[in-house]
């Protein structure tokens, strides 16, 4: 298994396709962090330092800047890295005639597929670590604020959640590479699933939630109605890995966040109340943020495990001949 793992790792790091995707992700992340950093600097210059205390650094990852925040960017486009690493991992071996050669060696099929998955996961872990460390470095230079211990811990947990999320997409792409004989077919299937789960499903979920919890008077929604819609939205988001990741990372990177349905409660308040609440409420301690992120994280972990187990089961049951 070690031999397959090492070979896969070397293949990934030497692959021009992976390096191109990685460069793109890094460039966009830097841009996003740079713009967020400018916004944070402006806030600090305006004297907002007091109420930014304890979360200044995290804003580099959550502030929208000019376009997307970094966490939203990772939720939307991070899956591409997982897909690039996995979409041809098995069918490439099949089409180049090396699958039967390797499986004729004393290696079990489960070891083979596990080695490929772990190699992909390791590459994702290294990528995320590099991205996080470089952004921390840029933040230190750009904003001039040293992160607190709690901010570093929050970033560490965010790293883990991101790894599980990207691992889900690696598992999905590997499953496609087992089911589809051609790399083109598996790439298309993975991309279609990415578009559906990331962009369409949340919209469909919100539409279903709105239909399930309609407002009596849409121009003046009541607090109870907003809370019911919030709960329905929350329920709908549980089937979308992107929404789960979004919720978990928001809970971890934004210590002012009180819950997924906070947005809906805020909507019922006046603008002044909203401002005062956001301005003066205390920051949630890390253990409580962890508790808040836990259901989303566990669901995400379940999705990732399911994607890998499906790949594994499909592969071990497949005939080598048809392969």
């Amino acid at each position: 298994m070690k031999a397959v793992f090492r070979k896969e790792l070397a293949d990934h790091f030497g692959s021009s396709r992976f390096l191109a995707t990685l460069s793109l992700i890094f460039m966009c992340s830097f841009l996003s962090a740079h713009m967020a950093g400018q916004g944070v600097r402006a806030l600090l210059a305006e004297g907002g330092g007091v109420w930014l205390e304890g979360r200044t650094f995290l804003l580099l990852f959550t502030a929208p800047g000019g376009f997307f925040s970094l966490s939203v960017f990772l939720a939307l486009f991070g899956p591409l890295v997982g897909v690039v690493l996995g979409f041809d991992s098995v069918n490439r071996e099949r089409s180049q005639g090396t699958l039967s050669k390797i499986l004729a060696q004393p290696i079990r099929r489960d070891e083979f597929i596990l080695a490929k998955f772990l190699a992909g996961l390791t590459v994702l872990a290294v990528t995320l670590t590099a991205l996080t460390l470089v952004l921390i470095g840029l933040g230190l230079m750009g904003v001039g604020v040293v992160p607190t211990v709690e901010e570093v811990l929050r970033l560490g947990v965010f790293w883990l959640v991101s790894l599980v999320y990207l691992g889900f997409w690696l598992g999905v792409a590997m499953l496609a590479s087992i089911v589809f004989r051609s790399a083109g077919g598996s790439a298309m299937a993975s991309a279609a699933l990415w578009i559906f789960l990331t962009f369409f499903l949340p919209v469909l979920g919100q539409a279903a939630a709105a239909a399930w919890a309609p407002f009596a008077d849409p121009s003046r929604p009541q607090v109870e109605e907003l809370e019911k819609l919030g709960r329905a939205n929350r329920l709908a988001s549980l089937v979308s890995p992107a929404s789960l990741y979004d919720e978990a990372s928001a809970a971890l990177l934004d210590p002012t966040r009180r819950g997924a349905d906070q947005t809906f409660r805020l909507a019922a308040m006046s603008r002044v109340d909203q401002y005062l609440l956001r301005r003066f409420q205390g920051l949630l301690p890390l253990p409580q943020s962890l508790i808040m992120a836990m259901p989303d994280f566990l669901m995400l972990l379940g999705f990732s495990a399911a994607a890998f187990v499906l790949s594994y089961l499909t592969f071990v049951r497949q005939e080598v001949r048809s392969a």
């Binding site: 180049q96 005639g97 090396t98 039967s100 050669k101 004729a104 060696q105 004393p106 290696i107 079990r108």
Partner: peptide
């Protein structure tokens, strides 16, 4: 595994890396 470690197999259209 024992069989595969004691036997060799050259498949039809064997590929290379």
């Amino acid at each position: 595994l024992a069989v595969k470690s004691k036997t060799g197999y050259l498949a039809e259209n064997m590929g290379v890396y």
